[in-house]
Design a protein around this nucleic acid. Sequence first.
DNA 1: GATAGTGATGAATGGTATTTATTAGTGCTG
DNA 2: CAGCACTAATAAATACCATTCATCACTATC
Lengths: 244, 244
Amino acid sequence: MPPRTALKRQVNRLPPERRISDIMAAAKEVFVEKGYNDALITDIALRAGVVEGSIYRFFANKRELLVKVVEHWFEEMLRDDAEQFAAVRGSWNQIRFIIYTHLTSIHRDPALSRLMFQEIRPAPDYRGSHLFELNRAYTNRLVDVVKAGIVAGELRPESSPNLVRDLVFGCIEHRTWAFLRGEGDFDPAEMADAITNLVHHGLALGSEPASPMESVVARLETATARLEAAAGIAPTKPASARPR
Amino acid sequence: MPPRTALKRQVNRLPPERRISDIMAAAKEVFVEKGYNDALITDIALRAGVVEGSIYRFFANKRELLVKVVEHWFEEMLRDDAEQFAAVRGSWNQIRFIIYTHLTSIHRDPALSRLMFQEIRPAPDYRGSHLFELNRAYTNRLVDVVKAGIVAGELRPESSPNLVRDLVFGCIEHRTWAFLRGEGDFDPAEMADAITNLVHHGLALGSEPASPMESVVARLETATARLEAAAGIAPTKPASARPR
DNA sequence: GATAGTGATGAATGGTATTTATTAGTGCTG
DNA sequence: CAGCACTAATAAATACCATTCATCACTATC
């Protein structure tokens, strides 16, 4: 006589929102632990307390599940960052803040960052996806800062804000790949300072090394005009080559 | 009576090098057309004129085949670049050359570049692989240029050569992702100029777009001294502030 | 307390990398 | 040059998963 529980299948009904959030929580765990390819639907189902088939009631396929998980994480992150950012003043500080918070996200959630970089962004339908829009909003803060900095006369007007965006986010990614592969660690604050300084020096209109030169020029141009007039001589011809 | 050819299986023996290069050529084609995941061993075998099982005689698995294909491409590329690079002089030109050739490779072989960025580099065993060494050699040329530039007094001594490397290669990748996804096109020469200028301004102690300035200064300093002496007047005092 | 509607199940399906048992050339040896 | 051993090459078998589907069990409604 076989036990009834073995014959009768257990069914556990729950409101859809709950089911969805259970599945997403389980999926997040598994994706983080195993990466996209090695994550098994079976495993996700097990942890969510459902059976494989049930996942397909809420998500079209494994990839959509991944996208939803990453979207959720990203939205949360954006919410947290946005309010703090509003308080920061000055282009250097704002750039530094954006770099720092981005580095902090990567440092806190390396696996999710990786999924974003490796699985989501390269997909052919990425442009046109919600995550693309979210990410655009995220990175556009930097573009806006640069534009504002140019208008305010703090940053070089020739610098392309979009290129600066790629410079900053690309640099961050490139520099954190080793960490994302699980090799070693990094200090977000320290790295943020280094990157900000390097980038900012490429942007600064009147800071460190350019400004002394400019004031020298201003002084010399004035003096020359004054003296050439006073002496009544012809203007000095351009220097043929930089001496050295 | 069944025809004998249908019963007897065809076997075509070839020297191993030939087989290997046939398989690698076929694999390259398929990986480029379909990407890693959608590339089928069956398809590769078909195009190479062998049967699936034969591929496993020469390559441990699909991933090793991918790695070998990308390695081959990368080595070829390195050989081509190296000789040209040796002829370039001056840090701005050298940086520009490195950026330009890298952009050109991406522009010429987007699919292979993508495989490198998306499939190879994120792998946990990447560090320690031959491709890692090749890539290090490739990017180290930039590091060396920056170091040399600092020693020669052309570049700011505070700038970290390694950070500059990440800035440059990261920027290039970030900016070319849309192209790698098949969206639109870009002009390597134009982009190389833009990136080089942006980066170099963050590095330049006193060259390129700064260089006109330097020659002006040289001319003015000379003229001033000459004129002030001739006119017998006191040296002009430093400009108080930049007019604007 | 029957019944329609639907959430949930778990077994089946299909596709694909990888393994393996078998076969067909090839070159060596006596 | 016939037999033999060796190995390249084959094709079928295996294993592993995402995805689908026929069926079942709960719930609300009458």
